[in-house]
Design a protein around this nucleic acid. Sequence first.
DNA 1: ATGAAAGCGCTAACAT
DNA 2: ATGTTAGCGCTTTCAT
Lengths: 325, 325
Amino acid sequence: MQDIADRLNVSRSTVSLVLSGKAGSRVSEEVKEKVYRTARELNYHVNELARSLRTGASRLIGVIVTDISNEFFGRLTFHIQEEAKKAGYLVLTANTNEDLRDFEETVRVLIGKQVDGIIAVPPPGSEETIAYIRDMGVPVVTLDRACEGLDVDYVGVDNYGAARAAVEGLLDDGFRRIAVVALDLDIPPLNERRNAYEDAMTSRGLQADIDIRLLPFGREATFDFSKITKGLREKDAVFFTSRRAFTYSMANLAERRLDIAEGQCLLCFDDVQPYMTIHSHIRYVEQPVEAMGRKSFECLMDRIQGHPAPGRYLFTAKCVSNHKD
Amino acid sequence: MQDIADRLNVSRSTVSLVLSGKAGSRVSEEVKEKVYRTARELNYHVNELARSLRTGASRLIGVIVTDISNEFFGRLTFHIQEEAKKAGYLVLTANTNEDLRDFEETVRVLIGKQVDGIIAVPPPGSEETIAYIRDMGVPVVTLDRACEGLDVDYVGVDNYGAARAAVEGLLDDGFRRIAVVALDLDIPPLNERRNAYEDAMTSRGLQADIDIRLLPFGREATFDFSKITKGLREKDAVFFTSRRAFTYSMANLAERRLDIAEGQCLLCFDDVQPYMTIHSHIRYVEQPVEAMGRKSFECLMDRIQGHPAPGRYLFTAKCVSNHKD
DNA sequence: ATGAAAGCGCTAACAT
DNA sequence: ATGTTAGCGCTTTCAT
């Protein structure tokens, strides 16, 4: 910058004004032109770090998810990034693997990097950390999972409502003996979906048929899958409360050469469209991932721009089926 | 920092020394202790931006992929991030959607943010941009796709070798009429896989049976899928050159109620393990994603730490089958 | 063992 | 319309 100024016999401030687009009519067109040209010649790039230090805004946001390799979070992140790009922000992404320590550490590092805001999928027990972010004066919006009793932005889906409607749809269509296969993870969305199932069954007087199978969470978990799925063939329908529960089961079914019964209906919370060929009757609950990603970024921008009141945005999810008729 | 110094009647330098862990024996244990305590009391966090400005190292790296919501890239990114975390780096991620302009712009922004290095999946035609990054003095490693004629780090898989072995494996097992379904995208990995197929067929005197179906690239592409897949049922086997080609086809098959022929073998380049239930004979080529992710970060670190010579790391991919016997 | 001072590259009052 | 100056928060050499 000094180089440009020297070459042109103007001051650094003038160059700064021009290059940051804040010149307006304060600098003559002639000088502006020269500055631009010289900057190009010298292959000059502003040092955003220095700029951020001075302005107090890094134009960086942090996105903390459970696991970016999970397609659901991958898609959310993608849409957040596309919005961020338009708004001139860059996105720092990090994974928690549902680990609280990891989350805390990541938050610390992100704040150290002076991010202008954070969008986070809070792992279990992270309420304090979320409150801490907010108290540090860093705008934060929680995604996918709400933080109970915390007045902070939240963007998510109506898990209970969508799951309940889907299960009742099953019941309406004559599927009565419905089992659940779920990841053994204590997080709100999964809990709500299970609760919706239990309530739906109970409201139809089918509490005796409530049947929940838990899949251990974690990659390397070795366990007896066949034991967990024992008797599943006899069910009218199976409700998988997340894509991971579904794909995990499918993969294991394949390995053990088990199969799915003929007229059985498979219901999954989350898009499993590519699996529609597997079986003649699959239904899934489709979350509006793109809208959620966009909304969470929009929320964050509102907060960064000083909007005071946090909001809670609950999206509805619709059920899709591949069944004839 | 000044606050801490004031409270303790020491200088900022002393505080800095202690807090950055460079104190060694230069500061008395007593003062060190006090500094730590006071920092905690005041809830002090170093401003990494200022530190980076001063030290010239941002501890930030950029990862540019095609599309983070694609599971392959999501997993690569995940493993890069886990390595980065260990090494004390944060990762800025961005998507190009295979668009060159987008890539160039992203590179510009990342360099402006003073990233210490970039790991990139280069979109078609990005050789110049890659060279530019390098010439700017920013360490760069290309991932998944090599840049022809550019002496820059590269981490990828032996696409040709793995595809050729997989197709010849099919031929050895008596599948002769093999068709290809591929995304219509001019990128090295996809091209190599197609070439391997053509060469394998030709080497067995089956050039007359070469049959390649192209799927338009891009989300909103509307086209006549059934036209593209016409006659596929009659083939002995179908080779999908990428997961996207595979899942896309599966999704469409499902929609149109088409099906796959009995004894047919489905071969896919990339892990489609969860689909193993679909059909009795599926093979897929499994890329060592974790190793690739780790290696690319390791490479970048080498370069950042001043290692001079770029390397090319070609991983081998193995073929997996679900067929009995 | 500790402090003073300069400076990383930029911006923004304020002055001219 | 342009320049001067101070300073963002930190590190680091050089003195003491």
